[in-house]
Amino acid sequence: MKEVPVVGRRSDVGVAFRFIAFVLRPFLMAVTRRNWRGGEHIPPPGTGVVIAGNHISHFDPLTFAHFMWDNGRATRYLAKESVFRIPIAGRIISAARQIPVYRESSDASQAYRAAVAAVRSGELVAIYPEGTISRDPGLWPMVGKTGAARVALETGCDVVPVAQWGANHVLAPYSKRLRLLPPKTVHVIAGPPVDLDDLRGRPVTSESLRVATDRIMSAITQQLAEIRGEVPPEVRFDHRAAGLPPTGDPATAPDAEDER
């Protein structure tokens, strides 16, 4: 399989992010095969953009960032705050300018403000609109939250939808068992920016955010269907309708047996 060339990167990525890339990229090159597509839709360094992707494994942030790095961009993630409290790793992640998310707290808006500021300064901000690993039984994208749409409509930046598949074969959802051998093929496909032009230049409302989010999730789902060669569910999975908490392994949720 032809490898994607590594193109120019911004000079202000920072030492911490370069260190992470230096350590992780050779490892990922060794333990995965890569089917990267759609890199032409990733804007050049210095252009603020939101990248919205599906979330299928605790391993996929690594392969997602690998795809972006190979297409010339460093990734700023919105990551749950607890990750930043991990000894050593948390300090490195913080130094790499990742954005902590304080779920269900009065500090939750800090992540939104930081994401807006990053986009306005020309950075690439990656957001998983689902907010957690998919709980859909087939790992299809769930109903999305409105954060990616909100950042895009406030800043005027593009939202590039990205679908990924294969990282879940390296590390299954909510599993701790890595399956590194034989190397698994990781598919990542970026699509053209989601058309939000008719929603721009007017007040941001709950309705416009929901319309924008539905378009983003539809684009991701269509791309994932292309990768998998399968037909997605007609209705996106909603944890509220399924009676599940917003995060965590659905198999260990209260009354999970009754919900299956």
Rank of each mutant, 00 (worst) to 15 (best):
D107Q: 14
L28D: 08
A52Q: 03
R34M: 10
A74H: 02
R103I: 01
V23R: 11
P137T: 07
I56M: 11
I88M: 13
G90P: 12
I127G: 07
I51R: 04
G90R: 11
F59R: 04
P44T: 06
A108P: 03
W69G: 00
R76V: 00
G72T: 04
N54H: 08
L78V: 13
S57H: 01
V50E: 05
I127R: 02
D70R: 12
A52E: 03
I86M: 08
A79Y: 12
V143T: 13
I51K: 02
H66K: 01
I86N: 07
P87A: 02
V31D: 03
P26H: 04
A95P: 09
A115S: 14
I99W: 00
N54T: 05
F84Q: 03
R150E: 10
E40I: 01
T75K: 01
P43S: 06
H55N: 08
G72S: 05
P100D: 03
L153S: 01
G131Q: 09
A108E: 12
F22K: 09
Y128I: 05
L24R: 00
W69K: 10
N71C: 02
G39T: 05
V83Q: 03
G147E: 09
D60G: 03
P43E: 02
A79R: 12
T47W: 06
E81W: 08
I42F: 08
G72C: 05
G122N: 10
W69Q: 11
S109Y: 04
V101Q: 05
G72I: 06
S121L: 03
T132Q: 10
Y128N: 08
V83L: 15
F27C: 08
W140H: 12
A111S: 15
D136V: 00
D70M: 14
A74P: 11
D70N: 13
A126M: 12
M29C: 07
F27I: 15
V49H: 00
L62P: 13
G53M: 11
G138C: 06
L124I: 08
S82Y: 10
R33K: 13
G72Q: 01
V143N: 10
G138H: 09
G72N: 04
V143K: 15
